[in-house]
Structures are given as C-alpha cells and as structure tokens.
Simulated scan of single mutants.
Amino acid sequence: FFFERVRGNITHLRVLAEAMSTLDLVVSFAELALEPKGEGYTCPDVEEGGPLLIVEGKHPLLAGESAEPNSTFLSRDRPLELVSGPNLAGKSTYSRQVALVAILAHAGSFVPAKYARVPLLAQVLTRSTVTRDSGSIEDNLSSFYAEMQDIARVTRALGTCPGASLVVVDEIGRSTSEADGEAIAWSVAEHLLSSAGAFTVFITHYDLLGRLPEKYPGCLHRAFSSARGSKHQLTEAGSGPDQGLSEKQYGIDLAEGIGYPEEVVAEARELSRAASLAKARPPQAPRDPGFRLKAQARDHLEVLSLLFAKGLLSEGALRAELLGIQQQLQRLTAATATATNDGEDA
C-alpha cells in the first residue's frame, strides 16, 4: 500500500526534492554572504569581457584555514599561466582553486578571495589529475590514452565555442617517453596560446616548457618554491630551464622521507645529477631583454586600474605603485641605452 501511494505521487516528490535542494543551495550562498567581511569570502564582479583577476584567492575547502592565498591574473595579452614547482607544493590545488572561483562566481555565490573579477565564460575545460589517470581496464584504456582523450576533448571544445573559456591543464605527457611528453606538452601549450578567448592555467614539471615565455610574451611562468617548509605561494619565475622548473631533487627527498631503501635513494640522486648535467643548455636570450618587465608593468597597470575603480586601493597607494612602475621603466630605459652605446663603441 505504501509503495503504491509513493508511486502515485512520484512526480510531486521529485518536484519537492528539487525545491529542497535549490533551497539548500540558496541558504548556503546566503550563509557565505553573511560571513563577516575579511573572513575569506567576497562578492565577485562578473562582467562581459576583460581579464580574470583573483586577489588572494583560496581553494573553497581551505578558505577557513591558514592556507597561503595566491592571486591570479589572466588577460587577452597574457592568456596563459605556466605553473611549476615540486610535488606537494600545491600546484593542483591552485589550478582547481582558479576553476572553482570562476564556477562559484557564475553560480551566484560569494567566492574565497579578497577580490575577484571574473569575465563571463562560455565553458570551463579541465584536464586534471584524477583516479582515471591510472587507466581503465573496463574501457581498455591506458593512462596515457586517457590523458590524450581529455586534451582532444578540450581542443575540440575550444574550436567550436565562440565565447571565452577557462582551461585548466594539470600535467600532460607524463605516461610516455620524456621526449614525446615534452613535445606534446609544448605543442598543446602553443595551441592554447593561439586559441582566441582561452584563459589557461597550465601545470608542468618539464624543463623545456620553461622556455615558453622566451618565445611567447603572452605566457607568464610562475613557480612554487621548492624550499622545505616554505609557504605554498606562487612567485614569478625567470625564463629559461634553470629558473623555476629546477626542483633540486625534491622528488627524491620525498621518496627518502617515505622510506625508500638508502641505496635506491643514493643511486637516484647520482643519476639525477648526471641527467641534469647532460641536458644543461645555455638559455636563449630573448629578442628584447626588457620585454618581460614591460609585460609585467602592463599587467600591473591593468590590475591597479581595476582595484582603484572598485575602491580597494587608496589614491595615495595608487600614486606609490605608479611611481614604482615609472622608476622600473626608467631604469630599464637607462640600461638599454647603456647597452646600445657599449655595442656601438665596440
């Protein structure tokens, strides 16, 4: 009798369940909005076009903890952020943080950041490290094939979507030879840089990709520190393979800490040093030695403009920041003039 009554009212029960879930969502959003200012959540600005700016953002699961916040800036002129660093530094957490802040903003929720400005996105595409990376026996897929499927899905979606997209790529090419993996990762990064409307966070361990900013000013390389006990905070890395991607055998340190046999650890360290020496190449000088500083100054100006317009930066602080940028560019101009004169004298 009971089941007959349930069966007869199943439509009403479904509507009720949907209404309760919607109410639960709205109440959750309201609780975040009622959090005291400065407690970690803020109302984001979601606007048509323009850059993606997150100031001191955190992963939603870490918003109430003492996790180190990290900021993000992606724009039409700087659409790809290359992120490197050792294992356990927080690279994957950071990339998911950016995606989740964008999704929460579009859902109408407050976001875990000091300030967030999110452009209207048509889609959020991810190639992320998940359990599926171990492959699938049922589907007869290797882990590398699963990676390539994900990237193919991302590139196809970019090719058919006219709007802005946020792309998160968390390491690709790991499950094949190093040469093939580096080549695939580089080619995919190039493709994403050339894709109109794509804002990308691209995580990698490959040394070769440290050269991307030398060729593409639209790529910013940032790195987590490999120092033990350091805060999980991103800083801008220099271009070239020896600046930002070198992990100083952190992976081997981790293996040693877990309890690998001493002889295995010692042999791994020796082989790692030998391989690093064999691969060492002098970095190529960029065509314009000051292009990175100029691009950084342009990004800085755009961020200052957004923060000042929202009342998050005082007039005095804005003047001080602008004076600092002016002094940096003046030093760059003087250094360039000196180098030019020295070259003519020679």
Rank of each mutant, 00 (worst) to 15 (best):
R7E: 13
G8K: 15
I10A: 07
H12E: 15
H12M: 15
V15W: 15
A19K: 13
M20D: 12
D24Y: 10
V26M: 09
S28K: 05
A30P: 00
Y41E: 01
T42F: 07
P44A: 13
V55S: 03
E56R: 10
G57A: 09
E65H: 11
S66G: 15
E68D: 11
P69G: 08
S75T: 03
S75P: 11
P86F: 14
G90W: 03
S92Y: 04
Y94R: 04
Q97G: 12
K114I: 02
R117Y: 00
A122W: 09
L125K: 03
L125G: 00
R127Y: 15
S128N: 10
S128P: 00
R132L: 14
R132G: 09
E138C: 05
M148E: 13
D150T: 07
I151E: 02
A152Y: 02
T155C: 08
R156K: 10
V167R: 04
D170R: 00
D180P: 08
D180I: 05
A189Y: 02
E190F: 12
G197R: 11
T200E: 05
H205L: 13
H205T: 14
D207P: 01
L212A: 15
Y216V: 14
L220R: 14
A223N: 05
G229W: 00
K231E: 07
H232W: 11
L234W: 04
A237Q: 05
A237I: 04
G238L: 06
P241T: 11
L245A: 05
L245C: 11
S246K: 10
E247N: 04
G251H: 05
Y260P: 04
A268M: 11
A275V: 03
A280I: 05
P286D: 03
D288K: 09
R292H: 12
H300C: 02
H300V: 01
E302M: 13
V303P: 00
L307Y: 00
A309T: 14
L312T: 10
A317V: 13
R319H: 13
L322I: 04
G324T: 07
Q326P: 03
Q327C: 06
R331L: 08
T338N: 11
